[in-house]
């Protein structure tokens, strides 16, 4: 097909080839500090990973970051979409405003939250101080127990709009006579929500969960700007681990192996995503 040729050529060159090449590289010990010797090591990069505690730590932090973020995104987006599904004055303006976080570049988002969390002059400190919740300014991002949550908060803020739009699609698809019927049968607001609204939103939720998990697992920008994996290793997630291994330790072979593990995890997760979207075409 002549019409398909360009897209296949492009995707072959920028997606299939790199992924295949990456698999190939992951079987070699390739260190840029030692450019002339790249011995074949087979699966060693992968077996090393399994024994690497830093890697498992990063995996664990990635999982917790994703769980926290995706749960928060789904819950907030649920509330927001229920609100925007109502008819009231100012609804259009509100849904336009909601696009602001979505449009902001991640780097600017990171810069903004870094400034909000700032330990000397940040808005978070200022606000909590004025409200008497704290009696002295805190080093928010320097607190190992809070860092991951604070980064998740910045991530959630930016991702809620998209999740809301996706959930609104499911909400709008509920025929209003189902509600009338339920009301005639004497169902309370809460019963209507649990038995009519929530089941109808299932596909929307599924899509939001899968998509946002995919985004959370691979997320890099916020970690790079807010904490660089710190303090200690409190925010040392998988994407950051791959970055450090590849571009700071210049170990491309093991970096490729790690990113391959990440890609396969994503594929497993996105199987459902692909199936649902693919069936529609």
């Amino acid at each position: 097909m002549l019409f398909l040729a360009p897209v296949m050529a492009v995707l072959g060159a920028v997606a299939v080839f790199p992924i295949a090449y990456s698999l190939y590289i992951s079987f070699f010990s390739m260190k840029l500090t030692r450019p002339n010797r790249t011995p074949f090591v087979g699966l060693k990069n992968y077996t090393d990973l399994l024994a690497d505690e830093a890697f498992w730590g990063a995996v664990w932090r990635t999982v917790s970051f994703s769980l926290v973020s995706v749960t928060a995104i789904a819950l907030i987006a649920l509330l927001v979409s229920l609100l925007l599904n109502q008819e009231f004055r100012g609804r259009r303006i509100l849904s336009t405003i909601l696009l602001v976080p979505w449009a902001i570049p991640y780097v600017a988002n990171a810069l903004m939250w870094k400034w909000i969390y700032d330990s000397s002059y940040g808005a978070l400190n200022g606000l909590l101080y004025q409200l008497d919740f704290i009696d002295k300014y805190m080093v928010w991002l320097g607190d190992q127990d809070k860092t991951l949550f604070l980064i998740a908060n910045a991530f959630v803020w930016k991702e809620v709009p998209l999740a809301t739009i996706l959930l609104l699609v499911s909400l709008k698809s509920i025929p209003s006579d189902i509600y009338s019927a339920a009301r005639v049968d004497g169902a309370t607001v809460w019963q209507r929500f649990v038995h009519v609204t929530l089941p109808a939103m299932k596909p929307g939720f599924l899509l939001v969960m899968i998509y946002e998990t995919m985004m959370a697992i691979r997320h890099f920008d916020l970690f790079f700007i807010l904490t660089e994996g710190g303090p200690g290793s409190a925010s040392h997630v998988l994407s950051w681990h791959i970055y450090v291994e590849t571009f700071r330790n210049l170990s491309f072979g093991s970096g490729a192996a790690m990113s391959y593990v990440l890609a396969i995890a994503t594929f497993a997760l996105s199987y459902l995503f692909i199936r649902t979207l693919g069936r529609r075409i």
């Binding site: 890099f220 994407s239 990113s259 994503t266």
Partner: peptide
Amino acid sequence: VIPDIALVV
């Protein structure tokens, strides 16, 4: 769905 970070190397 290929993660961008897997393409970097």
